[in-house]
């Protein structure tokens, strides 16, 4: 028993190490992309179109049909994914947490409304909502982020509400109330820090999820501008050339996978350590 528990602990650490490493490489590469590839992946080398990977040192991952370097486009393209992941989750988590705090603490109408919202959200898959709305303003980065916030804040609100329901009855919160502390102070300084673990886990997993969603939408032509290098856009372009040039579709996908796997590993590790009672995997 002791031995198996020990190896499990080591495994948890392995998750963190592997996830942290993947994230460091991908995020570091993307942050440094302006310095590594000053041309932003736009420079065309017309004498080296559709060059296979691992052939020429100047283009280690090959080139696309316009002679643009696949490596520099993959690294630069990460900006879109990271921007979408970061802002959509920050927005949804802030708004959702606020609503969850109010609904769980004051109960009443706010709570009823929240739960009905959650039902609706469950029945309306994001991608359908997105393809409907993407046709409105055309497709754009801010629109996509707003849609993700609109469709995901409910998750945070539900999680926070759940924790607040039990926290509000705990002694330390009642003590704070008995001291006559103002409600906002109780909520943000006493309740929120104790409800934050699950929120953090959800945030990590949703950054991962939203990077996947962004690439799907862009792939369908409903996401970011096809002229801006992005992973989903590169996959859409590369699809036409799959018969002859596999590398254009393989490498952006690998980049997505490394980033998202890194986030999932870290999220998993967080869940095991912060929220051991979580039921849903």
């Amino acid at each position: 028993m002791r031995a198996s528990r020990f190896s499990l602990r080591r495994f948890l650490a392995l998750e963190l190490v592997l996830g942290g490493f993947l994230l460091a490489v991908m995020i570091g590469g993307v942050l440094a992309s302006g310095w590594l590839f000053p041309d932003g992946g736009e420079a065309m080398d017309l004498k080296a179109r559709l060059l296979p990977p691992f052939v020429r040192a100047a283009h280690p991952l090959g080139t696309d049909p316009l002679g643009r370097d696949v490596l520099s486009r993959v690294v630069t393209g990460g900006w879109i994914s990271l921007t979408v992941g970061f802002w959509s989750v920050l927005g949804a988590a802030s708004f959702g947490t606020l609503v969850g705090l109010v609904a769980g603490y004051y109960r009443g109408l706010a709570e009823t409304l929240l739960m009905r919202f959650a039902d609706v959200q469950l029945a309306l898959p994001f991608i359908l909502l997105a393809i409907t709305f993407a046709a409105i303003v055309g497709s754009s980065l801010p629109l996509m982020i707003v849609l993700m916030i609109v469709s995901q804040w409910v998750q945070y609100a539900r999680v926070v509400r759940g924790s607040v329901l039990s926290l509000r009855e705990r002694e330390f919160v009642q003590a704070a109330r008995a001291f006559g502390l103002p409600d906002p102070r109780i909520l943000f300084l006493h309740v929120l820090p104790n409800a934050f673990g699950p929120v953090l886990i959800l945030m990590t997993l949703n950054v991962a999820n939203n990077i996947l969603l962004e690439s799907s939408l862009t792939f369908l032509g409903l996401g970011v501008d096809p002229l801006v290098p992005s992973w989903g856009g590169m996959l859409a372009d590369g699809r036409t050339y799959m018969q002859t040039a596999w590398w254009i579709t393989v490498f952006p996908g690998l980049a997505i996978m490394m980033t998202v796997l890194g986030l999932n590993l870290v999220g998993d590790w967080l869940r095991d350590n912060l929220d051991p009672t979580a039921k849903v995997p």
Binding site: L235, R239, I256, N264
Partner: peptide, 26 residues
Amino acid sequence: GGAEDQVIRIVSLAGLSFPNFWLALM
């Protein structure tokens, strides 16, 4: 906690880490 568990867990996590259309293309 054993080796098999770790492999299955990591591989299934990896399976959640790429877009479905990319798997389709592959």
